[in-house]
């Protein structure tokens, strides 16, 4: 009955979401925040699995302090791509570089990505990043958008994603939500699950048990940052000028920074032009 009334939307030219569709898999992750201890093993495992460069993350653990002494508690919320059933990033990508896999994965094709960052703007969850221009291994892609793959290469071999494997508290549970016998489906049927930004209608495949609204709320992340976080943010923005051209350091005049961003953009042109030249040389003479 529920299925009949569910609005079926196809976001983009690729596969529509598989939520509750018989005969199809819908890989999903449930994160039990009661078990998360904030050790960040998942972040390390993900970095190691894919060789993620410095300054960007496919998964991370947000952290906050609740209350005041003696009634206080530290809370955590691991974040990653939500592998939405209706992904805005897929719909908005102009070159079909990102697509929805029939089993629920939202994946990125580096060879199609032009680095326009439309998907990054479209993603409501900050789950995407641009790979920096300089990487230690020259064979790995640069200046294209990257994201969590739900470790499809492992899942297709019957393994769980690296972050799930590494989770010491067993907080991350992974499986096929369409299979009633899977652990995630059982959890979904007996626990109260929440997702991030449900009002956007993206139907995320990552859900949380015991989520705290203050960590899940977007404006709260800004207004209730610690003093240390504010300084860290400005340091991040100052140190990464040139990776993006829209970063503004808080508390400093805006328009001079806009000018600096433009200079930063102009400075990247010779580097990019060399890439274009190399591509022509490779195409014509090699």
């Amino acid at each position: 009955m529920q299925e009949e009334h569910e609005i079926r939307r196809s976001y983009g030219l690729q596969t529509a979401g598989s939520k509750g569709v018989a005969g199809r898999k819908r890989y999903a992750m449930v994160i039990d925040l009661r078990k998360c201890i904030g050790c960040r093993s998942c972040m390390v495992a993900c970095k190691a699995e894919f060789g993620i460069p410095l300054g960007v993350w496919r998964t991370w653990v947000k952290e906050g302090d609740k209350g005041s002494y003696p009634n206080t508690r530290r809370i955590f919320m691991p974040r990653l791509c939500n592998h939405c059933d209706y992904p805005v990033c897929v719909r908005n990508c102009p070159t079909q570089a990102t697509f929805k896999h029939k089993d629920g994965f939202v994946l990125q094709r580096y060879n199609r990505c032009i680095g326009c960052r439309t998907c990054m703007v479209a993603c409501p969850y900050n789950a995407r990043h641009l790979i920096p221009a300089k990487r230690t291994d020259k064979n790995l892609p640069t200046m294209v958008v990257d994201k969590c793959t739900f470790c499809i290469h492992r899942v297709k071999k019957g393994l769980v994603p690296a972050c799930v494997q590494a989770c010491v508290g067993g907080a991350r549970i992974f499986g096929d939500m369409n299979d009633p016998n899977s652990e995630v489906a059982k959890l979904a049927s007996k626990e109260t699950l929440t997702v991030l930004k449900p009002e956007l209608g993206t139907s995320p495949s990552v859900s949380y048990i015991g989520g705290d609204w203050e960590l899940m709320d977007e404006p709260h992340s800004y207004t209730n940052r610690s003093k240390y976080m504010k300084e860290e943010f400005n340091t991040f923005k100052r140190n990464h000028k040139g990776d993006a051209f829209g970063d503004i350091v808080e508390g400093e005049p805006t328009m001079p920074q806009v000018g600096q961003n433009m200079v930063g953009f102009l400075n990247t042109i010779p580097h990019k032009a060399k890439g274009v030249y190399d591509a022509f040389v490779n195409f014509l003479f090699k």
């Binding site: 005041s68 703007v121 940052r225 610690s226 976080m229 991040f236 051209f245 970063d247 000018g259």
Partner: peptide, 23 residues
Amino acid sequence: MDESTITYNVFHHVAWGTTISVY
């Protein structure tokens, strides 16, 4: 105090910046 203080998070870039505004 009921509200929490965010003590750790990773930061993200503004993907479209000055170039797009000039455009």
